[in-house]
Amino acid sequence: MYLIELKELVKSYGPVKALKGLSLTIPKGCLYGLLGPNGAGKSTTLRIICTLLSPDSGQVYFGGLDVLRFPGLTRKKLGYVAQEVSIDKILTGRELLRLQGDLYHLVPGKREKRIAELIERLDMGEWIDRRCGTFSGGMRRRLDLASGLLHQPELLILDEPTVGLDIESRSVIWALLRELQAQGTTILLSSHYLEEVEALANQMAIIDDGRVIAEGIPSDLKQQLGGDRVTLRVREFSDENESEKVRQLLEGLEGVREVLVNRAQGFCLNFVVDNENVLPRLRDELKSAQFNVFALAHSQPSLDDVYLQATGRTLMDAELEVAGIRDVKLETKRAMR
């Protein structure tokens, strides 16, 4: 049974098309990961689900309810933890939680009980009565998460919840998300961290350029790729020209496919081999062509490989491409109501 259904969502910000017909379904009770580089359309998707944005076209359903027609009913059922932590620096953590409770119309008794539970669960007792302006990034994120959970939502939406966090805060958040999912809360999480989605999600979609390019169970997506992943470095610091020559050589070898020059990692080469028996032959061919092997790593497929397979570039490459053309100030302005 699906809790969320998105159908052919299109959304533009002026000339920039953020979503280009994005469709996906999120089963009830799962921890669903949205993976993709910055600017892929993850935040826009989440903002549409939580009624902060309206799509130019397309449909959104929450448990069969048309979100675009009944946004008020949807808001009661979801908790949203935005990418930019939006706290009032003058209030204390507890005051902020009380405000949140009142915005969700909790009766004072229940509100105080939930606040006490969350303070304990997220280990916020030592600092919750200090002003939010004095909090570290990890403390702010935990408080924001507590705000999103205060009214016990059916769906918790988290936009890049662990960006820039210390390891302790990250592990507290990961543990809580696993616990919530075990208790039946549906969680929708966006991230551009591969390891986060691999570690947490039991279903996922990869978003690129405003579309879903792969969707399913992470292990299935990796297995569907077939073959083993190899990363080859002929020298510690190769140049593009040399890597291109190696690529041409590798493409002629039997049992080797999908050879790519990875610019983001110093022009190393990523490719797929049918099995590990191909590797000794590959070494011999490189030696005959007078190429050294500085490093050769061999692994099972990862989610980055799924992304690579679908887009022809690594997630890191995609990040670097976007980093050069993104205007964060403009995006912030667009996000303003």
């Binding site: 902060l52 915005l103 969700y104 996000a335 303003m336 109501r337």
Partner: peptide
């Protein structure tokens, strides 16, 4: 509140 995103917190809430 608009600039710092706090307004979004209010707008996501199920205000009457």
């Amino acid at each position: 509140d608009r600039e710092f995103g706090f307004l979004n917190r209010l707008l996501v809430a199920p205000l009457v």
